[in-house]
């Protein structure tokens, strides 16, 4: 390895131990604001729009991925399942036995399609953050979790109204049973706030925030590792910089695996909370 290649490598890298070199610039939240492609840029014309950005393209990719997964695993169904079929059956049975049945009960099998599609869709959107060259979780844009949370919100209110009737459902949801009358003026606004405002908001923001933070963390590790990679800074400093860079790379890899777990967990928690809200709306209390 000649000094030329080291220099070449150092050129792209950062300027650790380089006097007067570029300072470290942490990845900004700008990575969550990809600029729209020129052919889809209508964001100037319409308010509150962003145009066709990387998010929209990754959304299509994620949707296609889920659709392909569904087609591929349930194309040929048999009583004795093939491996492909088993994958989807495991997903369905996992959601049924871990989410739907404990939260809603056996009646909850009606909502199984909703929960399965929520889980698969969110997991596919999350996993976009780990696929090389795409590397942007779709759910790190608040617009998408808000849409899903709105679907769940409308669903559980509709389920509550259909099961108990309009008046009874809102009374049971807003007025806690067993509370003395004098404390109700205090409790009712809190219940309204927590059940109908904070609940959908946190439902969406939980997913968004974890994906956002996780991606930012990974980006920081990658940028920091690259910044510290400076082998041309002399024998001692060069070695130290490579060691630093290597530890950052190691952390990046570990946190990538961690992110995968988080992505699964967030899809699971989102689906679980959706089932929980539907179950609460369904049972009178």
């Amino acid at each position: 390895m000649s000094a030329d290649t080291l220099n070449l490598a150092a050129e792209g890298g950062g300027g650790l131990f380089t006097p007067g070199g570029p300072g470290f610039e942490a990845p900004s939240v700008g990575i969550f604001f990809p600029s729209p492609w020129s052919w889809g840029d209508y964001s100037e014309a319409l308010p509150y729009t962003s145009g066709i950005t990387k998010y929209a393209v990754l959304l299509v990719v994620a949707t296609a991925l889920v659709a392909f997964f569904l087609w591929w695993t349930t194309r040929k169904l048999a009583i004795v399942p093939s491996r492909k079929q088993s994958i989807f059956e495991i997903v369905v049975l996992f959601i049924r036995d871990q989410i739907s049945r404990p939260m809603i009960g056996v009646k909850g099998d009606r909502y199984l399609p909703l929960l399965v599609s929520l889980f698969l869709f969110i997991f596919a959107m999350n996993i976009m953050g780990l696929i090389p060259f795409l590397q942007l979780p779709v759910t790190s844009n608040l617009s998408y979790p808000v849409g899903l949370a709105a679907v769940v919100y409308i669903t559980f209110i509709a389920v509550g109204i259909r099961t108990h009737g309009f008046g009874r459902y809102f009374k049971s949801a807003v007025v806690p049973s067993g509370a003395p009358a004098w404390i109700l003026p205090l409790l009712v606004p809190i219940e309204i706030l927590s059940n109908f405002i904070i609940r959908p908001a946190t439902h969406a923001i939980r997913l968004f925030a974890t994906m956002f933070a996780g991606h930012l963390l990974l980006a920081t590790f990658a940028a920091g590792g690259w910044y510290m990679f400076n082998p041309s800074a002399g024998p001692l400093y060069g070695t130290i910089s490579v060691l630093f860079s290597g530890s950052a790379l190691l952390a990046f890899i570990i946190f990538t695996a961690f992110e995968l777990v988080i992505m699964f967990l967030q899809a699971f928690v989102f689906t679980l909370l959706a089932a929980l809200y539907i179950g609460q709306a369904q049972e009178a209390h």
Partner: peptide, 25 residues
């Protein structure tokens, strides 16, 4: 009593997580 406990765990978790998320927002 795993079923009802799990439900209540997640209700409490969601409520507490809501506070952290409010801070984030």
């Amino acid at each position: 009593a795993r079923g009802p406990l799990q439900t209540n765990i997640y209700i409490g978790f969601a409520l507490i997580e809501a506070l952290a998320l409010l801070g984030f927002v």
